[in-house]
Design a protein around this nucleic acid. Structure first.
Lengths: 187, 187
DNA sequence: AGCCTATACTCAACATATTGAGTATGTCAA
DNA sequence: TTGACATACTCAATATGTTGAGTATAGGCT
């Protein structure tokens, strides 16, 4: 359900095509909501039926016609209805943690390699977020929307930093003996 | 796909019924993998067809018959095949972050209330994990499996701590003015 | 005596997400 | 000029996850 509300939120900022929304998801929303183009198009279709959004069909020469969606009063009402509902933490399904659990039965070198690879990936993402964060520092008095967007970016930053710190912690325990952590002490 | 591999991993530790697996998921695996009983039963059925697990039917007086599943050599081979494959970070879909983004258009008091509520929830979970962590301290020389399990628990601990820290950060920026963060400075 | 919880599993319907193909054209660079 | 990439959307199949009901009985509590 919340995909619809995420779309309603980004449409509150400005009317957009499905394609635009997908772009915006990738660049700034992706740290807390992943959705494919197909999902967005399908959801927009459903939301249109529900009356939460409407669109203008903009004929284009050459390219396919654009559907520029905007939020309707009914959509705003739905957003307001949803807003105060309590949220639950998102369920987590982390393959990497399963691999750590299975570590007792599998070659440790493979786990160590994977942890190093993942650490690097999280570091790359962290650096992208830090570049985005630097953008916020240059504007002395940003619009209200930007301030809230910044708070979501902070979540992304922390998330990547936390992953890196955990990878380091695990690698420090696994790497010294290279195939046995029996001698490593906890904490 | 990885649900099957998670089940294979817990079955590597010991043969279990679907019911048992579900219990174990809830208590110790839930910090990185959530799955309902129904999902587990269905997945076990598919895995049995694939030959990755087999079961003994234990007739029980009164209760329905037990299916005690164990991993087969084919299942072990599948786990070994899967193990070195690179993992991707799990896609995130966090309602709360969407609400933060929508904060510019919605009553701030509702967001603040929700952040406080969520902070408390993460604190409760953190305390449960800390109680579990204390269990590991008492065993001086734990079996190998327990050591890896401990590393996954560390991820859960960090995750909750990180959420709490972010909630505090956001609340500190939002709360002072109670309905406007214009005057708050970044970082 | 009646109710709740735990054990133990099955089936069905629905919702959500992923993957891949298909349509159509403009722009830019090798 | 060929090919990659961006724009812009649609359809279909499959995979995965959620929700709710249904079957059955033991044991403990009120």
């Amino acid at each position: 359900m919340a995909l619809a509300h995420t779309i309603l939120t980004v449409l509150s900022e400005q009317p957009s095509t499905g394609y635009d929304i997908s772009k915006r998801f990738e660049e700034s929303v992706s740290c807390y909501w992943k959705a494919s183009q197909q999902q967005i198009y399908r959801e927009l279709g459903k939301m249109e039926v529900a009356g939460w959004v409407s669109f203008d069909l903009i004929p284009q020469a050459g390219k396919p016609d654009k559907k520029v969606y905007r939020i309707t009063p009914a959509g705003q009402a739905e957003l307001a209805r949803w807003y105060p509902e309590p949220t639950e933490p998102a369920p987590i399904r982390e393959d990497l943690l399963v691999k750590v659990l299975a570590g007792a039965f599998m070659p440790q070198a493979q786990l160590v390699a994977e942890l190093r690879r993942r650490r690097q990936g999280h570091l790359d993402q962290l650096m992208r977020y830090q570049a985005m964060e630097a953008q916020y520092q240059v504007h002395p008095n940003p619009p209200r929307q930007e301030q809230y967007r910044y708070l979501t970016l902070r979540r992304g930053l922390r998330y990547e930093q936390d992953w890196i710190a955990w990878c380091d912690e695990v690698l420090a325990l696994l790497a010294p003996t290279a195939d046995d952590i029996t001698t490593a002490h906890y904490r």
